[in-house]
Amino acid sequence: MPDRIMKVGLFIPCYIDQFYPDVAKATYQLLKKLGCELTYPINQTCCGQPMANSGFSNLTKGCDVNFVKNFKGFDYIVCPSGSCVLHIKEHLKDGGTPAELEKIRQSVFELSEFLVDILKIDQLNASFPHKVGMHISCHGQRGLHLSSMSERVSPAFSKTEHLLSMVKGLELLKPERLDECCGFGGTFCVFEEAVSVKMGEDRIKEHLVNGVEFICGGDTSCLMHFEGILKRQGSKVKTIHLAEILNSAL
């Protein structure tokens, strides 16, 4: 871990703030325990991704401006969602000077890459004695390169798995199609409802075959989609965010 305590801004996606506060709490507590000087800028809302991915990036100026206002001046900005981080990295374009925007784009990190690449965590006191199925979220993987990709010819690695391997008692199980999309896809989940649900059901099926108790992921949006289907199926399998596992019994 770096010597200096770093000023870290906690970036919590809007839907996590509203619907999954436990994921945000786990992220907050975890980073605190790991020694970060952590602030949650209280006037943050949304990165603007829902509009931009729907073709309305012309409407994201307000979100950009608000984001920059809230997150200017941090050494790092950390967020428990690869998707929202990727949006900021690729599409933040208003609200500051080009240099300010560039600094934000460079300093925004998804939680697991922050833990592995910046904090260089090599041990955790976490314990989670359960069978856990790993869901790889596309934007974190293919956008932020949190793990190797099955399409590419390259050495295998996974920052998420590296972290989970430090958790006591956890049995990690992988679905047959290692990194297929869950079908959430932002507004795709309602505008292409049939395909979206079918994709989610198919992913879940592979986890159920493995006998998992939890499906774990780094993006709550994918998990929300899984959770909705699992609950409708009356399944006992639960979804859980990576932060919640890493923060468990720390």
């Binding site: 919590i12 996590i16 703030d17 509203q18 619907f19 999954y20 506060p21 945000a24 709490k25 907050y28 949650y40 209280i42 409802e193 649900v197 989610g200 929300m224 989609h225 959770e227 909705g228 289907i229 609950k231 409708r232």
Partner: peptide, 17 residues
């Protein structure tokens, strides 16, 4: 149609924070 809605908590993360 084919999925349950998420459970809405009393407090947002911001409230808790």
């Amino acid at each position: 149609k084919q999925r349950e809605m998420p459970q809405a908590p009393q407090k947002s993360f911001r409230d808790w924070y």
